[in-house]
Amino acid sequence: MMAKREYSFYPGCSSQKGASSSNYLVSAQSVCAELGIQLNSIPDWNCCAASIGYAGGGELPRLTLSARNIALSEQHNPGQPIVATCAACWLSTREAAERLKHDAQLNAEAKQALGEAGLTLKNETPIRHMVEVLIEDIGYEELKAKVKKPLTGIKVAGYVGCQTNRPFGIAGESYENPKYLDKLIEVLGAESIPTYEKKVQCCGGALAFSEPEKSQEMIKGIIEAAYDHGADLIVTPCPVCQMNVEVYQDQINTTYGTQFKMPVVYYSTLMAVAYGRNAKDAALGGQVIPAKKLEGIAGK
């Protein structure tokens, strides 16, 4: 029995039952089970305000949201690094941790606010993204060793997007041309597209709701480039990227006269299928645009 690696898990609002990336959580849990990763949820975690809470939420209230999560993690899961699957959760939490370390006044105020509920912030916990755990703690070699059903013959456009890539990114990767997703695709036996030029293009993020026309113009470019490269599907590490690029394809088709029907999956979906898990464990039922090729492999 392999020793379990334990992490303090911050799942985030969109991962909850009946929410937009609940399928990400299911597939990530399957992958973690295969790799001996134990996720201990932060009890009673709250929203991080993502990158759109700023109209109503000033700097201190927003930082305090993340401070509460870090404090709860340090109290209940001491010594365990926080790991988030959502790009925005990771970014907001890590940003808050760093800002509070560098601004004594904000730090003192956040601690005072937390005191209202008897919470204490040490702010000594590393804040990590699941991709970092996979690449840095597990490593490509072990990730490859677990493959039971190589994704042979599937061409995948690795769409990294923004917030898993900037401003922090994955150590050793460039902001303009990160390669970890392509490496992961290859490790799983699929074919990557290293020259996919839209790999770090913004999808509009939260503005897909408030500025749909402007965002859909960008999303169209992301999908079009994937088709131009002969991709069978797009893979991404971000819940907002996944949703934006997948669910507006009909509206884009109406606006631009395109005929897009490009599946957009999480890296964890690809991994769960390659690791031999069934369609349910890979959460393939969560695809608004079905990933037929993955269904085929998962059903074998």
Binding site: A19, N46, L207
Partner: peptide, 25 residues
């Protein structure tokens, strides 16, 4: 529109501590 959305997002998360995507949408 983004100012409206951003304010609604904040109000929404403050209420229950977590975002209710459906009510927000």
């Amino acid at each position: 529109p983004t100012a409206e959305f951003a304010q609604r997002f904040w109000n929404n998360l403050l209420k229950k501590g977590r975002v209710n995507e459906l009510k927000l949408g």
